[in-house]
Amino acid sequence: MTAQTAPSLTQNVTPIDAGAHVTAIGWLKATTAFALGDGGVLLTKDGETHRVEAHPDAGILVGMSDGERFVTGGDDGRVAVTGADGSTKTLAETKGAWIDSLAVSAGGAFAYGAGKRVVARDDKGREKVLEVPSTARGLAFAPKGYRLAISHYNGATLWFPNVEAKPETLEWKGSHLDVTWSPDARFVVTSMQENALHGWRLVPDKGNMRMSGYPSKTRSFSWSGDGKWLATSGAEAAIIWPFESKEGPMGKQPRECGVRHAKVSRVAFHPNTYVLGVAYEDGCILLIRLTDASELLVRPAVEGSGVTALAWDKSGKRLAFGCEDGQAGILTLPT
């Protein structure tokens, strides 16, 4: 089945003109927040849009939501927080360094990278700083507990910001980009400069896992709600690795879904079913059901409008997307 013949949900999509490159999307209950390359955050709710100047005269490089607030990092060296009510304020400020790595935890803690410095602030506002050997590229909080994974050149660092103990180092030669923690906290996985993923099995033995064969870099990961599957971008299909067993995906083949003549740029698992949102560099978006590989078309390919952000709301009823040319939209699943 191809995108052209897939049954269509396109009539369930509300288009939104975001006005600039969409770098991230966050859901604040019923409000969708689009972080933009021109420094704005566009809030939309029930068809009404409101633009907030979160990073005036700058660009937003990264954004994440904990469900209550939308935290953004910019090339103005600031971390800002924007609420569904349109309020915005500065959370942290650095001198000159771009903020392009960020992590937020549901408990209210957040962390950001500014060059080699990683700054973590807990829910009580206590700030701790860690210097890593090279620029921190990716940050991810462990699913439980106040612990941070930091990806960098030649490996990753696991850090308990509020514990004096020396951070744990996970070594693997090469440049590690983004990092993610499996929902059961057993695995830490990074994407790499060399078009591959690298993983460490934390229990029992810090075993290394190499997942290669991608034609380009993976810059988007998404875990299934139950943590059994990790979907990834970077190939002309979504590549989905099995993490159900203790060994992780070692010795197993990944699944490939949504094979098309365009690279997958973003993936987003539905929060509680085996349905994957797959977005492509040519602008197309599909929903794919893992159990039978059936496809639904959300957006046809649009020239010059590659998808750069994709996010489900918490209940899995709506899927928001944003593109490099400022087009965006929200799919509401038919009930």
Binding site: H21, G37, D38, G59, L61, D100, T135, Y153, S175, Q193
Partner: peptide
């Protein structure tokens, strides 16, 4: 240059 790759990725958001 790892920093250059990272910076160019960021700059492209302000194309």
């Amino acid at each position: 240059r790892g920093d250059l790759i990272r910076i160019l990725d960021g700059l492209m958001k302000r194309k």
